[in-house]
Design a protein around this nucleic acid. Structure first.
Lengths: 346, 346
DNA sequence: GTTAGCACTCTGAATGAACGAGTGCTAACA
DNA sequence: TGTTAGCACTCGTTCATTCAGAGTGCTAAC
């Protein structure tokens, strides 16, 4: 590959690992002391000069050591890190209480990840895209309002109060319930098409407006919440890294975490990847959110079994411990599998 | 009051206002230049010396001006600020969209308050304490699970999936529904007592365990969420105040905001106050949460009309603009009244 | 191709002088 | 007795300077 002989790769590797460890620019003498290659600092200097010209490393200023460039990190993540990957991956124990509430569990997960990695973490509430309707129930609340409850596979429950003009008697309500359930049961939200809606409205007769209303609200209820429920943890961890906490930098970053909407950017292209593990690494400017251009973001998308999926993001400095992060994410994957792949053992 | 003649009060007032404006210790010369009282800086110095001895002001170090002590702030909030209160309170316009989702609206509110005041804000999800059950509905999800939906007055909806051992036929379900509704309708959670539960279980016969289960889950569902759902905004505003962002200080504070549980401390004694406006001011060490001992916290509890209430907290430096904050909270009170006191006009 | 040596550069910490703000005290004044 | 002017003193802040350390690039020798 592009002008990198084995020796250069070794040196690059040493530089990056050194920098990941110390967080400070690493100089030629440091490298030369590493047992692996017996070269004087002068030789290293020459090689480093080449590596800089090739764009893999950067000199923050004259007479400082070198630090990896985005390109250097990328090379590391893509090629160098793999080696260590084959070593013993120590099994971290995630103690996740299986609680009834999904959101509680997700909050546990991000909190755990944050304390394990010392970076900021986020997790999306399970997305229902591609998920199926299990059943729908309308009930009378009072003369002017009815309550629609929708249960999806995976027992995600949504509810919505709907205003109505005229009171509904029980019989009508029952009919509507049967109509809605027989028609929609087992369908994904995407599968509910216009033809179906028209047909249902016909069958509902004078109450067609209610059916329309219900469907409107149903689809709206899903869209509203879809990409918005995001839990975060450990955002203050970012303060630990001087390169991120440069006065106003940090503020901007934390603000991005407060505005959950911005975090949604990070997971938009989760579908475009064909990575078998579902783990995606964004380095520096590669991140979708420009506020995080001094960070690296690692995202992982998990299947939760019932057609649900969730995306986790870990945000840290570019010199984050990628190996540790990935280890954690993989272990988490296993744990989630254990919890969700055998349902109903509570 | 304790050795404070009118002149001392005037001087104290000037010192505090000066400090609130500038954020820097204010010296005797600055005070002497204020038109109100024609005194030389030397005289002021004598008075300041007295005020310090009385505990109202503090000298950060020799040869610095004075800043208010907690006691000084307290005096200001209790006695001095009132005067300005009688002046024209400019009406700030809160643009609050009346959206269907209560939580959306609350998030809007905190965001608005945060940007209006430049402090950190929090709001609790409406607490249901003292609220009444409107209706309860059980539905079959599948053989092993039923769904309990509880609607409270104010249209707060809660739902809970409950595991069952044996499948329930529709008739039984209907009976249980009627039983639950006739018994519990219109009751507050507190009003549901053991006698009632026993009686219901008797009536449920062989399904008494289900009733017990439902009630368990119902009360748990409420308790879990009760003091936990808290929305925050503008936490990064705290960085703007140097006295709070002293390196690790800020981190601790923001962490407190992440751990919503800690924020709950701030609103625990909302009941103990007999203040007619519902606004409570905690200065420095008076705050219930020790992490905020360098801050002031202003809380306000609002009635939302349907027996619901919510508590708002504004957290800023001790030298926060108390008047502005209170103005905002009062205006918000009005706005919320307008929105909630005339229901059903959507 | 590799290495030793050297001059050069840059950063960061430490030092100390100059400055400004503010006080406390004393003596004079009304 | 209360008020004021004047002055010496203290303390924090800022700025420039110095100095040591780390690291480089280059050249010449191996």
């Amino acid at each position: 590959m592009q002008g990198l002989d084995e020796r250069k790769i070794k040196i690059l590797n040493a530089i990056i690992r050194g920098y990941l460890d110390s967080g400070e620019p690493v100089g030629s003498r440091t490298i030369s002391k590493i047992a692996d290659l017996n070269l004087s600092s002068a030789t290293i200097r020459n090689e480093m000069s080449d590596l800089e010209e090739l764009g893999y490393i950067i000199q923050p200023h004259t007479s400082a050591g070198r630090i990896p460039s985005d390109m250097g990190y990328r090379f590391y993540v893509d090629h160098l890190m793999q080696e260590k990957d084959r070593e013993v991956t120590e099994m971290k124990e995630f103690v996740i209480e299986k609680t009834g509430k999904m959101e509680k569990m997700l909050q546990q997960v991000v909190k755990l990840l944050a304390s394990n990695t010392n970076y900021a973490t986020m997790i999306t509430a399970p997305s229902v895209s591609g998920n199926k309707v299990k059943f729908i129930q309308l009930s009378t609340v009072d003369e002017e309002q009815i309550l629609a409850v929708i249960v999806m596979e995976g027992n995600i429950v949504k509810n919505k109060i709907i205003d109505i003009n005229e009171p509904l008697d029980n019989e009508t309500l029952l009919k509507l319930n049967i109509l809605l359930n027989t028609t929609l049961n087992g369908l994904t939200l995407e599968a509910i098409n216009l033809g179906m809606i028209t047909k249902m409205k016909q069958q509902a007769g004078i109450h067609s407006d209610i059916v329309g209303n219900v469907l409107d609200e149903v689809s709206k209820a899903f869209q509203e919440d879809e990409d918005l429920e995001i839990y975060t943890s450990g955002t203050t961890n970012l303060f630990k890294y001087p390169e991120l906490s440069g006065s106003d930098r940090a503020g901007e970053l934390i603000t991005a975490f407060e505005e959950k909407q911005e975090l949604a950017d990070l997971i938009t292209d989760k579908l475009t990847e064909e990575n078998q593990t579902g783990i995606q690494v964004y380095i520096g400017n590669e991140t979708p959110n420009s506020k995080m251009k001094d960070c690296s973001v690692v995202t992982a998308t998990y299947e939760l079994g019932n057609g649900l999926q969730t995306t986790i993001g870990i945000i840290g400095p570019k010199r984050m411990d990628y190996e540790n992060v990935m280890d954690n994410l993989k272990t988490l994957q296993n744990q989630l599998d254990i919890i969700f792949k055998k349902p109903k053992d509570s």
